[in-house]
Design a protein around this nucleic acid. Structure first.
Lengths: 236, 236
DNA sequence: CGTTGTGAATGCCTTCACAGCA
DNA sequence: TGCTGTGAAGGCATTCACAACG
């Protein structure tokens, strides 16, 4: 496994240390907010303002930024374009990310047409489907490729990331093929636990999980409301 | 992420303690795995087997389950239907959850057709869109409603959850209307920070964020590989 | 005897207050 | 003076070993 000490002389971010997962997730939010500020022509921003716009408190934001380095000016704030560039660099967004989407159902098409990708360093280079009827259709600038050409197309397009938008039954099989083809970063929308070698980074998004978490909190809120209600009734 | 400062309300409900967020997320995974085991007719499972299938280690799984109660049998394992039911109950999935989806683009349609909902206690009761051309179309058993009828339809369908699948520009406005209509649980796919009162639970899913996190890890792996490569070259 | 349930210890993230600097 | 950057403290999650129990 990669050791920490040999990353000292590396890249744009002088701070070779790893970023805590929670901070990492928030940094992507800051980056997005800074992006909209850029288009609005905002040049400077304080940690307080940026935190407010990102929905966090300012000490947390400053701590998050401190994992990257010291890119602000005390007494003044942050230079929006500069900070934006530094976060991008730290996240590795200055590299070339070529994304293959496997599955061209509604979800795959939604992803292929997602406007947020191009503007943030990601290029969708391939879109696959198993259904012969949909193969060949054009989505934006992309033509849907047959899934049996997966390995060949991945190589010619030099894709280095993949998104799984296939039914649960097909997910593990597709994951295996992607891994065998050398893909090491996979984002899966399939509601299954994928098995893959540890060097493969897998992130998963599951809408049912998200709703269930909401349901849990909503249920607690209901119960709490009933409890205080009953209590109020007892007290009067 | 919505960090809720929790109520001090201790123990009105059966196991009144709150479940740590990290455990909560994993419990939904266990539930899904148990669901597939149910359909396969598996009756009993050990913590070791269940943990393996869920992609975690067994002490962690047992700890997670212990937040709900003691539903296993020592020396034997867990009864699959029983445990499944207990987790469902703890998450509040035995209640009626009626979901309204706002936005009937590819993403909204993908969600409306998601097979995982019905089987897990969620019913999609409404689907809205702003485009007059798509209003009136039928998606499965649903007819797309015009977004200007939002409040009325939410009331008649008694929706108690909402999913935002609209463009970023429209998200905050739609969120406001949902909140005003009494919705307190919202899952948003729009890449913006939503402002809402604290009693409203908001979870968000952002594909760009997920890809950026993958990019960060992939970049680090690349850098580490280059470093060890250079080191190896120096050593020979 | 085998497996669950859990207290205790460890390590990590978050928080906060203030030191440091323009 | 004002705002950033960070050390220290507190809280939370994970881990582990073993006690409890069918």
């Amino acid at each position: 496994m990669p050791d920490e000490q040999d990353v000292t002389a590396v890249g744009a971010s002088a701070h070779g240390r790893h970023i805590p997962p929670a901070s990492l997730a928030r940094l992507t939010v800051y980056l997005r907010v800074l992006g909209t500020m850029l288009t609005e022509g905002v040049e400077r921003v304080s940690s307080e303002e940026l935190a407010e716009a990102a929905g966090v408190n300012s000490p947390k934001l400053r701590k998050d930024l401190s994992y990257l380095g010291s890119y602000g000016t005390r007494g003044v704030g942050y230079d929006v374009p500069y900070l934006s560039g530094q976060i991008s660099a730290a996240l590795g967004l200055t590299l070339d990310w070529r994304v293959a989407i496997v599955g061209a159902g509604h979800l795959g098409r939604a992803l292929a047409g997602y406007p947020g990708f191009g503007t943030r360093g990601f290029e969708v280079v391939a879109l696959f489907d198993a259904d012969p009827m949909t193969v060949g259709q054009e989505i934006g600038w992309l033509r849907i490729s047959p899934v049996n050409s997966l390995e060949r197309v991945l190589e010619t397009t030099r894709a280095n990331m993949a998104v799984l938008a296939v039914p649960a039954e097909a997910a593990q099989q597709m994951c295996d093929r992607l891994v065998k083809a050398g893909i090491t970063s996979i984002l899966s929308f399939a509601p299954v636990v994928l098995q893959a070698p540890p060097e493969v980074q897998i992130r998963k998004v599951d809408m049912a999980t998200e709703l269930q978490i909401l349901a849990y909190h909503a249920q607690r809120a209901q119960v709490a409301a009933l409890a205080t209600d009953a209590q109020a009734r007892l007290m009067r």
